[in-house]
Each structure stands twice: as C-alpha cells, then as structure tokens.
C-alpha cells in the first residue's frame, strides 16, 4: 500500500496530517474548550508542535545513516511544518496573548533571554523556510548547506526556551531537550562512524 503512494502524495498527506493539531486546537479554542486559560494552552500547544517537527526533521539524517531508512524527500516538509507551527506560536503570542502591545513586546524581545531564545529559533526557521525552495538551493549553491546548518542553533534555542517556559524544571521539556541534544551531538561524530551504514549498502 505504502509503496504505491508517490512521494508527492505522501508529502501532501504529511502536510494535511501535520496541520491537524493546529486546526483542532484552534477549533477547540473557538468553541471555548481549552480550559480556563485558553490562549495560554493554544500558545503552548503550537510551540510544542514546532519543537516536535523540528526534532522529526533532525531525525532524517541519523535514520538514513544508522538505519538505512531514507526519508530525505520528506525532510523539507517536516522542516516547513516546524516553521508553520513556530509562526502560529509567535502569532498567538503577539496577537492573541499580548494583543499587539508594542511596549510589552519590545521589552520582551530586547530584555528577556527566555523570549530572545524563542525569537532566535523562530528567525532561523523563517530563513530556512524562505530558502527551502529549488530556486534558493540553486542560487545559494554550496552556501545553502552552511545556511541550513543553522537549524542546529534553532534546535538548541528552542529546547532551552521550552525548559524556561515553566517556573520549575519539568520532565517533559527536559526529555525534549535530551532528544534534541542527542540529535545535535550526533552531528559531531566523525564522518567515518556516521556513514558506515551507508557504505555497507
């Protein structure tokens, strides 16, 4: 069954399924079913999914190198989903939560490391999303890879931002940070170790 689906169809499906949490949470918010503090829940849910898709996009390379599973053709979709969720998350924060209050937003973005880390991650994934098209890949040439390695910094910032979003250390953001750390540290392994599996195939 899966074999008969073209890569293009799987990608379309991925976008459709990937956006379900956003749509569902939004619908619940409109129906006033997100509890006592709906805007906060909405904002957090969107941020969480941004991190989840960022992690999934970072899994593509190790899966290919260690397990021989090639999902490269879906990596851009996963990265773009991370960007869309980050954009929704920031929009919810700026609009729904802070009501476009310029003074508060400026203070947040210039003074608070918690917000600055989130913003750095958002700016990076925005640049990556904007340069994820074929034209940019051609245009940037060899520099494209260097630009897109900024995703590692985005992952680091996002993981710390998530930890700081709670008053105390909590298990969930720490687990995400551990997964993120493993995925980033993997990139530091010598090429020979990483590509052994590829060479065997």
């Amino acid at each position: 069954m899966a074999a008969r689906l073209s890569a293009g169809r799987v990608r379309t499906l991925l976008y459709a399924v990937g956006l379900v949490p956003a749509a569902a949470t939004f619908a619940m918010g409109v129906a006033n079913r997100l509890g006592a503090d709906p805007v906060n829940v909405f904002e957090r849910t969107l941020g969480l999914w941004a991190i989840r898709f960022l992690i999934l996009s970072l899994c593509v390379t190790p899966l290919r190198e260690l397990a021989g599973i090639n999902l490269l053709r879906y990596r851009r979709a996963l990265g773009l989903l991370a960007f869309w969720y980050a954009l929704f998350h920031v929009t919810a924060y700026v609009g729904l939560d802070q009501g476009f209050d310029g003074a508060v937003l400026l203070a947040d973005i210039t003074r608070r490391p918690f917000v600055i880390l989130g913003m750095v991650a958002f700016l990076i994934v925005s640049v990556l999303a904007a340069t994820s098209n074929a034209w940019s890949i051609r245009r940037l040439g060899r520099r494209w890879g260097a630009v897109h390695r900024m995703v590692y910094l985005a992952g680091l910032c996002a993981a710390v931002h998530f930890i700081l979003s709670f008053k105390v250390l909590r298990v969930e953001p720490l687990l995400y940070a551990v997964v993120m750390a493993v995925l980033l540290l993997y990139r530091l392994l010598p090429g020979a170790v990483r590509r052994r599996r590829l060479a065997q195939r």
Binding site: N32, P38, L96, D97, D101, V104, V115
Partner: peptide, 22 residues
C-alpha cells in the same frame, strides 16, 4: 525576568479565546 507583569489574563471570562483581552 521571563515575562512582563504590566498586564494580566483574566481567567474564566466568557469568550476567553478572542474575547478576554489582557
């Protein structure tokens, strides 16, 4: 240090998603 205290989100206000401005 991590957020402004200038405004607050009132809990349990009808239409809380769009309606309850800070």
């Amino acid at each position: 240090p991590r957020w402004s205290q200038a405004t607050e989100r009132p809990i349990g206000v009808r239409g809380g998603f769009f309606g309850a401005a800070r």
